[in-house]
Design a protein around this nucleic acid. Structure first.
Lengths: 349, 349
DNA sequence: TTGTAAGCGTTATCAT
DNA sequence: ATGATAACGCTTACAA
């Protein structure tokens, strides 16, 4: 008696009993590719079949195997993001909005933190590339040579977010720190303040704080005034803010408005003023940067400049979805999205 | 003339020019499986070949295709995590530590937020399962029926983190809110305070705040005292805190210590006290919950109870790595990891 | 609009 | 210690 099965036994694999696209297809009586099309381009499947397939999917509890799909199509619906840290007050909103828009469009976020280390960024990028991601998002614009090589060869969109550095070619979404200093200075000048000082971060190597001070300096000097930039020595931001405040408020030509490089410094100044009985903003106005959660809880509440954190995540996610064809792409999309910070006016100015 | 090639032309695919394991293998002069073993179980490859393979990998710039590997082995080095929100002050530390430990061990974090919606959680779980993740982490213990079904059938470790609900069978890593109330009450009793009140959250449906108040009530009543639980009506936490403070500090039997359901409420009380010239903690002690970033920046700084956020991420990540065999597993691992909160004593008590 | 066949790059299984 | 072969579940290319 003839048996068409192979002589040797098959090599079964522990397939974990997963429902496959073929089971759905045979349940409906169509081929697998039709079910595949039902998910990818529903319009190319007749309405009748669509209904039947939907019913079969529900009945069998079919969940598309994205790993297999990714292998077949040589690209996955994963977007990798490397961010300095997740838990800081600054980046969380960017991650949040970025992740939300991706998942609304069927893409998944793969996240890794670099702690401002280019080497850790490189490792993360290497791991991500093993997943054939649809796109990659890096924070800032300094990368190792190996990273540069990998992203050049990857053949996928790579966006740089947060700080803008428009000389570079990749797609960037962010803001310019100089704008922050300019905005704060113009605002205080417009309010009639005369002696406006700037307090940088005592942490050496915070280049962004220096960028902000440069914007301040530019505007103040355009007005024909002298820029006064103070660098505190205390390490802890609250103490550094207090130190700067006491130094700038004293002397024969005390400042009547101070821009702080971040909200923590400004907070230190506000608390010092409170203890010393100095009235803010009557005796001295205070402006911060970051719009941390404390800013509106202080007394007086803190005028500050809010970076477009949520917007950066949104714009980056949308642009990626456009580039991979998941959203309709506009005709002339810029390479650099220069977003604006917002001045939040509160009681301290 | 015989030509063994097929009559029709081949069907090439856009392979994106990726370096494959086979190219590495033929470069060395071995078979693909040997290179595969070099990555998975280096000990089973001779030392000589190891060196040659390493050289070839470096020279060709080979990056293992994890998608293909995931398909072949029916499991990926991805761990999915669903968290209520990324940007809140609470969960960020958990995500951070969880992500860090995973990536240190070659696993990747896939993240999605639920905004406390079981339906969004269900969608996220469904998406994740398409990636054949090695494990899943969900926040809290209320899921839709469909989610319960999916995680039961997935055949992978599913951990629930944050709130503990030890009657449930899955692996849990978290703390108990009742403990928070107990800890605060015992602490204030130990400090000699007499009339200790509790302020819950005005947001209806914050069950965790109610749990904390229950812990407070239990301890206070054990001492033979009357529990006093105040529920403010104001919606904004700062206003609600102020409302509660004014109500509890007034009257003929004013509270001399107040436990607030969270730091934002406590902050509102602290600011109200400041404006009213009421001395904290001399006239009334204040204790919060959460250890938000503001807590140590207020004046006076806020005594509060810190949830084990970082520890939850660490313990969950380690347990997952143990369960998937990436870390050596201890003999008797508990199903429920009951972690402790920490009381941070500052100036307000 | 639907179907057939081949292959995506890796690993499980069996064999040496 | 190393290799041959066949899956893994899906999608591309081509055909009807």
């Amino acid at each position: 008696m003839d048996n068409s099965l192979p002589a040797t036994t098959r090599k079964p694999r522990s397939t974990a009993g997963r429902v496959t696209i073929r089971q759905v297809a045979s349940h409906v009586g169509v081929s697998a590719i039709t079910v595949s099309r039902y998910f990818k381009q529903p319009d190319s499947v007749s309405e009748e079949l669509r209904g039947q397939i939907a019913a079969a999917v529900a009945e069998l509890g079919y969940v598309p195997n994205l790993v297999a799909g990714g292998l077949a199509s040589a690209s996955s619906r994963i977007v990798g993001m490397v961010i300095p840290n997740i838990s800081g007050p600054i980046f969380a909103n960017t991650i949040q909005s970025f992740s939300d828009i991706l998942s609304q469009n069927g893409y998944q976020l793969m996240l890794s933190s670099s702690y401002f280390s280019s080497e850790q960024e490189e490792n993360a990028v290497r791991s991500f590339l093993g997943w054939s991601p649809a796109a990659l998002v890096l924070t800032s614009y300094f990368h190792t040579e190996a990273t540069e090589k990998m992203i050049a060869q990857a053949g996928i969109p790579v966006l740089e977010i947060w700080d803008l550095q428009t000389e570079r070619s990749p797609i960037q979404v962010g803001f310019m720190h100089e704008d922050v200093g300019r905005m704060a200075a113009r605002y205080l000048i417009g309010k009639g303040y005369q002696r406006i000082a700037f307090v940088t971060n005592s942490i050496a190597g915070d280049g962004s704080a220096v960028d902000r001070s440069n914007g301040y300096k530019e505007v103040v000097e355009q007005e024909g005034r002298a820029a006064q930039i103070f660098t505190p020595t205390a390490r802890l931001p609250l103490e550094a803010g207090e130190e700067a405040f006491k130094a700038l408020i004293g002397g024969d030509k005390p400042a009547d408005a101070i821009i702080f490089a971040n909200d923590n410094l400004a907070c230190g100044a506000l608390l010092a003023a409170q203890r010393a009985g100095i009235h803010i903003p009557q005796q001295c106005a205070i402006v911060g940067f970051g719009d941390y959660a404390i800013a509106d809880k202080l007394y007086p509440s803190l005028t500050t400049i809010r970076p477009p954190a949520t917007e950066i995540g949104e714009v980056a996610a949308r642009r990626i979805l456009e580039l991979v064809g998941a959203l309709p792409a506009p005709e002339n999309a810029p390479a650099h999205f220069h977003l604006q910070c917002t001045l939040i006016e509160r009681e301290s100015s």
